[in-house]
Each structure stands twice: as C-alpha cells, then as structure tokens.
Design a protein around this nucleic acid. Structure first.
Lengths: 195, 195, 195, 195
DNA sequence: CATGAATGAGGATTCATTCAT
DNA sequence: TATGAATGAATCCTCATTCAT
C-alpha cells in the first residue's frame, strides 16, 4: 500500500490552526470544522492526517514540545560549566516562552488540563534530558542543591510559564531587566549558596 | 425542619460535583447532566442556582479561590517578621495545595485555560492582598528583592502548583523533607542574599 | 367542597397578561412563568384558575370574543332599518378593532392559527347572532345580497382585521375619513345596488 | 447522475414539510426533528440548508409568497382594461387560495402572528406591484375608488383568506357560484358606482 | 489524495406542570 | 388559597466522524 503523497504543508497548517484555536477557546470548544477552515482544508481531510481529534491534539502537543526542547538546547554544548550551561539553557527557554508564546501557552494549557493522553505526556517529557544531565553534574560538583529534578524544574523553569501567561493576559510587561531578575531568582532558588 | 428557601446544600453539592468532574474531564467534556446526577439533582435544578454553565464554573472558581486565600491567611497576623510571615503563609499555601488538591487542581486548570471569565479571574485575585503587603514591607526592610509582585509570586508560590500536579499524576511523592526543600528554594529565590 | 374564594382580579390579570404576551410572542413562545410574572402571581397559582395552558388560552379566547360581541351590539336595537342597523354595528366593530386593538390582534392571531380548540372556536362564534339576523332581514327586504353569511362577513366585517393589523404594524394610519371609506366599501360589497 | 452540490430536492422537501407541519401545529409546536423526519433527512441536515429554525420559516414564507404572486400575475398583461385586469388577477388569486390552500393557509398564519421577521415580511410584500399599478391606473381613469392601496387590498383581496380558512375548517363549501358572488362583492367594494 | 454533504449522538437549556409547605 | 422550588421531558442546535464522488 503506497501512502506517501501526503503534504507536509497541510499537516503543518492543521497543527498551527489547532494551536491557535485551542489557545483561544480550549480543546473542547474548538470544532474540527473550524480547524479545517483555518487550515484551508476540508474537515474530511483532517482524517487523512490524523486518526481523530484526540490524536490531533496529542500529535500537536508532541510537535510543540519537541520544538520547545529543540529550541532550548540549540547550540548548547556540554563543555560549558554548570552555571554557564544553566544560564544558557534558561535564557533559551525564556526566549522561547516569551517570543513563541503561542506555543508556550498551548503547552501550559495542555500541562494543566486532562486534554492530553498520559502516553503523549510522557513522550513529551523525554527530551529534557540534557538539562537533567546538567543538573546531575551540578549536584555532583556541589553547585546545585541535591533536590529531585521535579523540584529543580518547578523553581528554575516552570515560573516562566506563569510569567508568560501573565504577560499574555496583559497583567505585566516583561522587559530585559525583569528577565534578568527572573533569571537571578531562578538561579538563587537552585544553586547552593556560598557560605 | 422548615425548608422553603433555595438550599445551600444543593448549591454546595453542585459546586463540589463541578470541581470533581471538571478536574477529571475538563470543562467542556463535563455535561450539565452529569453534574446534576452527581449532585443528586435534576438538570433543570442547576438553573435555579446558576444562570448557565459558564456562570456555574465562574462561581465555582470564585468559591474555590476564596477558600484558598482564606486558608492561606487563617491565623496569620501582621506582627510577624517578614521572614516568619512568609514562612507561615507559604506553609499554609503548601498545605492547601497538597491536602486540598482537588481544589488546587481545579484552580490550576482554570488559571491556564480560557474557561473562566476575565471578570471572575479578577474577582479571584483580590484576596491575596496580605501577602502583597508583606512583600511590600519586606522590600522596604531590604529583606525581599525589589521585584514586581508577579515575579515574586511566580517564584515563591506558583511552583507549588507544578509540584502538586506532578504529585497528583503520580510522578513524585512529596514528603516532609521535600516540602522543606521547596520552601528553601522559594525563600532563596526572593530573599536578598547576605553579602 | 367549598371553592369560591378565588379572586376575580387574579383571573383577570392572568387573562390580560396572556393577551399581551401572546400578541407579542405567539402562544408557544409565551411561557407560563412569564404570564405568572406579569400577573404578579406564582406559576402554580395559574393552575388554580385554569386547568392547563391550553385551557388558559381557550378561556382567554372566549372572554375576548365575548367582549368583542358585547361591544359590537351594545345599544343596538332591532328597530333600526337594515341600513342603519348595519352602519351602527359596523361602526361599533370598527371602534373595537381600532381602539381595543390588543384584543382584536389576539382574536386575529387565534383565528388564523391552530392554537385554539375547535370546541372553543365554535363557542366564540355563537354571539354574532344579531348581525346574522339583521342580514337575514336585509335579504328578505331585498337590501342585502342573497349570499351566505360567511361571504357577507368576509366582505363586510373581516377586512377590518386586516386594516387593524396593518395599522398596528405601522404600515398605515387610519383617520376618520379612511374609516368612512372603509365603511362605504363594506356597504357597497353587500348591499344590492339600485338599478 | 453526478450529485455533489446541495440538493434542491432536499431544500424543497424541507420547505414542504415546514408548510404542512406549521399549518397543522403552528410554528413553535413544530419541532425541527419532525420536519426532518417528514423530509426524510437528518435533523442536522436542515442546518446545511438553513441557518436555524427562524431562518427556515422566513425562507419558507418568502418562497410561498413568491409562488403566490407569481401565480397571481402569470399571463396577466397590462393591455387589459382595468376591469378586465382586475377580474383576471382576482380570479387567479382566488384559484390560488382555494386550490393551493396549504400555501394560502401558511401565509394567513404568518401574516397574523409574530412568527415572521419584519425583514422577511417586507420582502414578501414587494411583488404585488402589478396589482398596485393596475389600481393606480383605475383611479386615474375614474373606475376605482380613490382609496389607499391597503384599503383596496383589505376589501378586494383579503376576504379570500377568510373564505379559504372557513372552507378549510369545513364551515363552508365554495362552489363556482359562490366564487362569482365573492368576485362581485370584491368588485362592488372598490369600483366607482355609476350614477 | 481531497472534498462537501450528510448524519447520529449528545449537550445546554427551557418549560409545563407538580410538590411540599 | 397561594407559593417558590423542583423536575422530566422535550427542543434546538452542534460536532466528530463518515460517505460518495
């Protein structure tokens, strides 16, 4: 059975439409027909690219999560010191969350609602490994607090989601100096304080 | 027992059912009929207590948010030092998020999706004032970093949501020592480090 | 079983409310609860005065129809000549249709839709007898065309309903001279023309 | 037979079903599901052809009104004398009202209840122009009474609606001689009597 | 591969009517 | 007599999905 002719453009358009519409309306308030319309495609066509609606969001989630981690670790190399490496990665992530905020919002919504398969959720976590490795090294070197990765992530990375959502809602405007403050807070929370 | 007025019990049962079902299925995947059934009430009865589905979640959100802040500031008094006060409030909030996790999850989902009216969202924020006052004092005394309240909240408080969700999903188990670690991370992120 | 205490005022208020609401929204778009509200009465109270919604409109119809014919024949006496008698009755009816247009509109809607029981419809027709008698006399005297009563009514009386609706809708404004024209048209249509 | 477009047949079946059911039960007592069933279509399909229930009746009304006027003026030409022209048109209208009485009843119900948009009502009136032109000519020639078009319509045409409803209800049977009587009554009411 | 038409199942909401007081 | 609360049975409409082309 030959099936290779599917257009990547159409798939991408569908993923893009899904992100935008789910961001604005939520998963269940986003009809397939609207996604189709926004992607300039017939509703029936969606089913050539995805099994069903659940599959569509799952795949979208994984796509976006992958883009997120790719972005985070682009140009990162493991020769950096722990502090340098963390700052590098943190700022990449900050860049992503604040500039690609459509994507970041989508992830935030997925991560806080039951709309994604457990399966796909796990799939999405995989790619953070370089950061976890860095923290592992940091713990060994006595630079990073010996806490579970979840705790480290909760304090070092996750706050950016909250800040991004707040900015998106117009509650705050994040300028460079505030980003720097955020970075310092993140680093303070996980580094081992000098005596 | 005379009973002629609309019953508070029914209202509460509806709110409770809404929280549980929305937590498990999300707003739009929760039919009014299921909420009614779980509250042992006819679907039509919901409309005696709430205008419509949107109103029901909005009111639920405000109720839960109010319970949250009430819990957070119970027994708190402003005579405490900034450090003491922060620890007191933080631990109350941690208690709430980890023990009343049904409520905490509901808030997390609301805060990260477009399912709540902007109006009700604002209503819900009001009650954090004592914490903001404490921070204000802390900044004046040179104990708390001079950052915007949103930044302070993002690092000092919000990570608890992430941890709660992670525990709920079974990814981690938070014992007392991890809570203590979390507290230290929170405090480190916002306090002014001694020279 | 004693049951005499029912208030005529409440019954009237309900009838009045029914007329107004049905005029504006139609029978089925008029909920009992709205009728109750407009009559300053509980929904349950309606059922003390009427069996059900159908009974309420039926009774309303008969009430209004009776008021209509009472009005039409008030002060009419059979000693008048056919021409005089007809003019007298016609002008009373015109008065009613144009001044009590709430009532007239209600009748028009009932007469052209299936919202009234056949039973009540027949009940409502009874009271036109004096006009039919007059026409009978007119036919004998060779003044009125020897046509069926329905035809006479269709041309002599019914057009007033159309004019009333048109005026109500703002399409026309009926002044005295137009009423006079209408009367002449009505009379022309049923009288036997002189050779 | 290629068939890819929305089918005119289905639209027609829906319009037909609407007329029949609304005639028998009234607008609000006619559920979309019954209309669908009678048209051998799924309820959801209705919404491919009409925006909603209101739109469905509006469109039905316009369709029927158009059929009515088309029928009325078919083969009419303006060379006829006023008297001839009026008789021609009147008899066409009588034919329509008495033979296509499903359509005529539907129009009568619409015209006497608030179930049709003001917008659509206006739309429906447009097409009577040839008759109005004829009357205009008649007034100039001194053949037709110088009354407003509404008055002329009320006496010359509208009584047919009343007669049709009466026949439909079984109150009368209209034979050819009665039609002729009706025509004479109509003409008498609007013509200028010879001295 | 692509599509517009079609649909059955389901959901929010309304409403005539009844119940408990 | 009078009522406000309560409800089950509709009703309109939407939507994920499939079908015919």
């Amino acid at each position: 059975m030959v099936k290779l002719q599917k257009s990547v453009d159409k798939r991408n358009a569908l993923i893009k439409a899904t992100i935008e519409l789910v961001n604005n309306n939520g998963f269940h308030a986003t009809p397939m027909s609207k996604i189709a319309k926004m992607a300039h495609v017939s509703p029936a066509t969606i089913y050539l690219y995805f099994e069903n609606k659940q599959d569509l969001v799952n795949k979208t989630y994984i796509d976006v999560k992958t883009a997120y981690t790719n972005y985070a670790f682009a140009n990162y190399n493991e020769d950096m010191s722990v502090k340098e490496g963390f700052e590098f990665i943190w700022k990449r992530i900050a860049d992503f969350k604040l500039n690609e905020c459509e994507h970041a919002m989508f992830l935030a919504q997925c991560d806080n609602s039951p709309m994604i398969d457990e399966q796909s959720r796990k799939e999405g976590i995989k790619h953070l490994q370089p950061l976890l490795d860095l923290w592992e090294r940091g713990k060994k070197e006595g630079v990073i607090k010996p806490m579970s990765d979840y705790l480290l992530y909760a304090y070092a990375i996750n706050p950016l989601s909250f800040l991004m959502m707040s900015e998106k809602r117009g509650a705050i405007k994040l300028d460079q100096s505030q980003i720097e403050n955020a970075y310092q807070a993140a680093w303070s929370s996980i580094k081992i304080a000098p005596i």
